[in-house]
Design a protein around this nucleic acid. Structure first.
Lengths: 196, 196
DNA sequence: TGCGATGCCTAACGATCGTTAGGTAGGAGG
DNA sequence: CCTCCTACCTAACGATCGTTAGGCATCGCA
């Protein structure tokens, strides 16, 4: 029975911030408790283990990316691969900007999950990456993108996208919209046909 | 007096592997010692502290990137911005491929350095990123690249490049040369003028 | 008025952390 | 032969780790 109350959500948020700032392994349960002005042991009234905290953050973030990609693909209908890739990139940027801490924890800390959970996340990441890869493959097939290795191109674009989570701050110079516009442009052009 | 003997180099290498695989904070001194078949305390005959180990790895990796970029820029002479950016990207890929563990530790674990050292590395990273940024700015100025925000473009390209360190394995499907070729192509096209 | 949640407390557990102290075995060089 | 040096050992330090046990106050609701 997973707790989902208001207090639990506060705990998740604080944990996200600290895991983002210092990393999962370097953040102690007592660090999280101190940020909430309670004792370390008191956290265990809400959480079964430290790893469960990480799991809650990573699982929710993975779902956010998946749902955003679902929505993006649905909305573009059966448009061409170029538009679908643009929608995927835009959706990804929006998810990151909506919660950069959680997203960055998802991207960088999921390896600290143990065993089965790590495998589950690895699978979901692969599936998510496959959407980009296959959209690129489709675009190459119909001549919308230049002939290139879809796996390399997808990894290139996705690692660039994930990098946003590590540097984006809501109070920074760039609005999420501007970032999304630029990244869509950079990603699409990196696959564009003519050049020079 | 910094030790540079053969044994110390083995220790650095083992530490690189473990910091890459599990992260700095999640790797104990005794983990490193076990991989060397010695006792944890014995490491302190070679190293002053765990953080000094991280520092040695990060400092050497930073120098590798800096020297490679120096060489790349020297060799292209006063060629145009397009060629200089291509040389920078290629050099970066080569450094990563030459020692992926060390590079990935450099990219992901430098925040665990304390105080002054972290600031030093932050500065060197900024300076390195500035080379990309200014090359892009030059290219935009002379019309070799489309008009775009050089800071965003540089970050886009560099985070994609750094991502290589996390997934590249020497025994993988892709040779360093092929990766470099593809990444140069992707990076240059992302900045190219005409499109569609 | 009583009752069960809810939310936090103190105290403590065994394990593990980075690190220090002090000692020993073996090889190189005078 | 003696001495220094390198490389490692055992033992232990105080701190901190994740986690458990058991108790106490406050609240909504019957």
């Amino acid at each position: 029975m997973i707790e989902t109350g208001a207090r639990r959500r506060e705990i998740d948020e604080v944990a996200s911030e600290l895991f983002h700032a210092n990393g999962y392994a370097a953040t102690s349960v007592r660090d999280i408790a101190r940020a909430l002005d309670i004792q370390g042991a008191s956290l265990y009234a809400h959480v079964a283990s430290k790893e469960d905290l990480l799991w809650a953050i990573v699982d929710r973030s993975a779902s956010a990316f998946e749902h955003a990609a679902d929505r993006a693909v649905d909305e573009t209908g059966d448009a061409d691969a170029v538009e679908r890739l643009a929608a995927l990139v835009e959706a990804h940027v929006e998810v990151v900007a909506a919660d950069p801490e959680r997203s960055s924890v998802f991207v960088t800390e999921w390896r600290h999950l143990s065993g089965g959970r790590r495998a589950v996340i690895a699978g979901r990441r692969d599936a998510y990456e496959a959407r980009f890869r296959e959209t690129i493959r489709d675009g190459v097939a119909v001549g919308a993108f230049r002939p290139t290795d879809p796996a390399i191109a997808a990894t290139f674009i996705l690692t660039a996208l994930n990098g946003i989570a590590t540097w984006y701050r809501p109070d920074g110079r760039l609005s999420p919209d501007r970032i999304a516009d630029h990244y869509v442009e950079l990603a699409l052009r990196s696959l564009s046909e003519d050049h020079r």
